[in-house]
Design a protein around this nucleic acid. Structure first.
Lengths: 349, 349
DNA sequence: TGACAAATTTGGAACGTTCCAATTATTTAG
DNA sequence: CTAAATAATTGGAACGTTCCAAATTTGTCA
């Protein structure tokens, strides 16, 4: 079935030039005569030649493999799917192709896939590290000069670039908005306490509480898995407190959706009976009912930026690690029961 | 920064054996003495050697690159994200790594990414073809002996394996269920008429209509983009018909969600005022409000099966193209206003 | 036209692995 | 103890490209 491969030598032969010339044409070198170039290109098309990057990589530097890796901790979360799409867009148009793997929060799996990607010679890696990833896990990778950009989560002590959203400011905004609507008992729901994201967002929550003259009570901070199911669990616990909160900021949109589910299970309507704000602005946030008020981080844009950052580092040879924080903005929709929506809601009744 | 690479020769030297022996160890050959193997492995770890698959591929057959490609037409659709996760699971544990690309329904982009993947020497490809893909687009790929498995959509005339869900039977089930609930005017909403998926599902709809003694009227078949926005548009058009439908089967879940949105915009509550059934059973289907009655195709399982099929073909050398249709089942939830849910609904009032 | 410069082309040595045939070391059988 | 068989190891060619230094062709100017 598989007829034998057409190589650069076959092309050279058919075009009546040397393999070196063909190679030059392949690389778009300006050194070759226009006529020759045309002839070679014609033969290439005619014989159906396909470039063998493996062979080329053997001779060239590491950083020219035109492969980047992207490994995320949970691809079923649409935030990461979006992120991957963003990355794909920019690497694709830069002529790269991406290895994508999902770790499902397993550091073992993560170690394996990164090792596998290294064997294949990736020029760079975009990583949303699994929970529990340590700087040591990235040690050999960075030592070998492969640029790494961490997204979403940082790894303490790792000398790699990172792109995270402005978690603290974002959560600050969310709390301020709720306080502005008159809420005093605002809960912080969801997330694993040992993650940087949790810490940052919680810090923003606390900042804002004191800034708005409220008391950040520890029992209003309820951690859980950062998932829809986690959200349900968290609101369950919040609703049995002696002094129930009247509003909540959630670690992310998934948790927020779960919180809405949980509220309904208790005959409470999110938006009118209880205000909830998410974080991320995943696609479903705007179409859900009620539409979710959330902090928009534009996952696809974040993917694009991460890819650009990575490509910059790849091309720069050995740029310094760079930490960029991506700004976020509050998107007010219905789930927080904002004034404008209240009017609309009343009009319906 | 990047210190020079450790090669098999360095290992050989340090372990006091020849490079051939090291190579044998790397491949887990039984020909090498246990003592030697242990010594070599120790050195490998010690020097931090990383296997260079590019070099190995140069010498080995095409089919051993341990890379498979997966290209989908819309990664932002969580159906495909799920599918990719399924594929990743099985290829990962088979020691493969996957190139993943998104075409966004562009055949040009698709052509580019497939070409790029070929250059990198993929051993096989899982493809959910962009709209408008023709058999000719896959011609060179299959001619070069690279196994291809089409998923979700087939490409007429292409001699490649395919894995599609049983669209016809699934839609048949959906319609029969609605008819059983007493609905007579059932619309078929969403999808582009020039796709095989549309044709199959529509056929199932028509089958079932006549089987249930109903008349399949053409004005009840309303095509649109197979997206949430398309669903909104489709239901808009359905609601201005002289004789409004009272229920709808939708091309997929995305359309169904859009239909629900559109219904609410007209003060109609999906589930009680109008029955809607989707297709795919994406993750959100069970947590949405109302939970979506839909035809479950288990996207992740489908990804796993596609990957298994592909790996089988890769290992077989040159297996025949195989067309497998994956069975589906109706999952009754709230959006169709099924009896069990009506009771629950009444209890709430 | 000759000399020099510029433009183009080229052979061969790498790159890091696998594979083959051949070699050497170790057992086993007689 | 030797021959044959078996186990283990090995050097070198090959894979398809790029890179370098050198060679060849073409063009320019006096």
């Amino acid at each position: 079935m598989s007829r034998e491969r057409v190589t650069v030598i076959d092309i050279a032969h058919a075009a009546g030039v040397s393999k070196s010339t063909v190679s030059l044409v392949l690389q778009g070198s300006p050194l070759v005569n226009e006529g020759t170039r045309a002839r070679v290109n014609a033969v290439i098309r005619e014989l159906g030649y396909v470039y063998n990057r493996g062979a080329a990589n053997l001779r060239q530097s590491h950083s020219k493999s035109k492969i980047i890796g992207i490994v995320v901790n949970d691809l079923t979360n649409s935030f990461f799917a979006e992120l991957a799409v963003g990355v794909d867009m920019v690497v694709q148009s830069a002529g790269y192709v991406q290895f994508l793997s999902n770790t499902g929060e397993s550091v073992d799996r993560q170690r394996e896939v990164i090792a596998s990607m290294r064997e294949h010679g990736i020029s760079g890696l975009i990583l949303s590290p699994a929970r529990g990833t340590e700087a040591a896990d990235l040690k050999t990778l960075v030592a070998s000069g492969i640029p790494v950009v961490n997204v979403v989560r940082q790894v303490a002590g790792a000398k790699v670039s990172s792109l995270v959203s402005d978690n603290r400011t974002g959560m600050h905004e969310a709390v301020r908005h709720l306080a502005g609507l008159g809420h005093g008992r605002i809960a912080f729901l969801g997330g694993f306490p040992d993650t940087a994201v949790f810490a940052d967002r919680l810090a923003g929550y606390r900042d804002a509480m004191v800034a708005m003259g409220l008391v950040p009570q520890d029992d209003l901070v309820i951690s859980s898995a950062p998932s829809r199911a986690g959200g349900v669990a968290a609101i369950e616990r919040a609703l049995v407190l002696n002094e129930r909160p009247t509003a909540a900021v959630c670690l992310n949109d998934a948790v927020a959706f779960g919180v809405c589910d949980g509220l309904r299970a208790h005959r409470l309507e999110p938006g009118s009976d209880f205000a909830v704000i998410g974080f991320d602005d995943v696609i479903e946030a705007q179409t859900a009912v009620p539409a979710l008020t959330t902090i928009s981080v534009d996952p696809q844009g974040m993917g694009r930026r991460a890819a650009q950052l990575l490509l910059k580092q790849i091309n720069a040879g050995n740029a310094e690690a760079e930490a960029v924080v991506s700004s976020v903005r509050l998107v007010v929709r219905q789930s927080c029961g904002a004034a404008s929506d209240k009017r609309e809601r009343l009009a319906l009744l």
